[in-house]
């Protein structure tokens, strides 16, 4: 049985001007040991989808799904008390902003020990030992003394490592890293990604990497799922995705990478991601798609099979004869 199974997850927010669908029909299956990347532009619902699974959305959000199970628990029917036991322990998340995710009033040591106390009920000595061990594991030098530092006394990279240490403190079965490196420099980013990968190998947890950096995806992930305007438009194994994207959006995104440029002019995707007020009727990508037809503008495309990377498109590209057969 898979570790995480999500079918047709949708999240709607009530806003000033009516309801807004931030996540639309999100599917994901994770097995222990998977490294899956979720890529997509800002606002495509990457963070919201996972916050919904963890039950961390405000009350304006309406969450619907056909199935949402984690490690044998049904996340739809679970009581808040049960959920608190899982979230932060078996299912853990590194949040997007390291600086605001740590409480500036307490030392980082106190904060990490607090997590250990609540979830594992360790005694004081064991907590301290484990905290030191964790800090060493994530590569914080002089761990003993750093435990008594406040978040503002450390650099962004160090704080991010503290966040990672807290997230892995209870040996989670699934770790969600929401843009763990966007605020960091490339040299630190390389260290952090390296660290996450080695932790994943050691503990065999499933790792979800939310990002919009194609370079990070290429270097870290095994599976990649591409989000557009709240929908998953394609999911493939990483090398296949980069060499043979099936969805026009993925293809256009890859073409827009400056490192793939052959001329001074980059290929662009015209227009912008649809917002609340200009969501197209048919395919969400149709106003920007270079191969769109009338059909695309009126009918939402079906989700394809695994052989074409679950591409949500009427006319998937890079399809060989045997795939379409």
């Amino acid at each position: 049985m898979s570790l995480l199974e999500v079918r047709n997850l949708s999240v709607d927010f009530a806003t000033t001007s009516g309801s807004f669908r931030a996540v639309d029909g999100f599917d994901l299956t994770l097995n222990p040991g998977d490294i899956t990347a979720i890529v997509g532009e800002s606002g495509s619902g990457k963070s919201v989808a996972f916050l919904a699974m963890m039950g961390l959305l405000p009350w304006t959000a309406t969450i619907t799904s056909d199935a949402m199970t984690f490690d044998g628990h049904d996340l739809r029917a679970i009581s808040p008390r049960e959920r608190r036991k899982i979230v932060g322990k078996d299912m853990s998340m590194i949040f997007q902003e390291p600086m605001t995710s740590l409480n500036p009033c307490y030392t980082v040591g106190f904060q990490i020990k607090e997590a250990l106390r609540i979830h594992l009920g360790m005694d004081r000595k064991a907590r301290h030992a484990r905290a030191v061990e964790l800090f060493e594991q994530v590569g914080i030098p002089a761990a003993e003394t750093r435990l008594s530092a406040f978040p503002h006394q450390m650099s962004g990279g160090m704080n991010q490592r503290v966040m990672i240490a807290m997230a892995i403190a209870c040996k989670p079965k699934m770790l969600i890293a929401d843009e763990p490196t966007t605020a960091l420099d490339v040299t630190i980013q390389a260290q952090i990604l390296e660290l996450l990968k080695s932790l994943q190998e050691e503990t065999g947890m499933a790792l979800v990497l939310i990002t919009h950096d194609m370079g990070v995806v290429a270097e870290t992930a095994q599976q990649v799922s591409v989000q557009y305007a709240g929908q998953k438009c394609e999911q493939q194994e990483v090398t296949a995705l980069f060499s043979r994207p099936h969805h026009p959006y993925t293809a256009a995104l890859l073409a827009a990478l400056p490192e793939r440029a052959t001329t001074k002019h980059l290929p662009t995707i015209p227009g912008v991601v649809p917002g609340q007020f200009d969501r197209p009727k048919g395919c969400l990508f149709s106003p920007r798609c270079s191969i769109a037809t009338d059909l695309c503008g009126t009918t939402p495309p079906p989700v394809g099979g695994p052989e074409i990377g679950f591409a949500r498109c009427h006319f998937p590209i890079n399809v060989t004869a045997e795939q379409s057969a």
């Binding site: 000033t16 001007s17 227009g271 649809p274 200009d278």
Partner: peptide
């Protein structure tokens, strides 16, 4: 480039309307 801004035609709610909503 031409192209860019097909979308964003649609009016977003005005400030006053939003104010009144809250």
């Amino acid at each position: 480039s031409d192209a860019t801004l097909e979308a964003v035609q649609v009016e977003r709610p005005g400030r006053l309307k939003e104010f009144w909503y809250y």
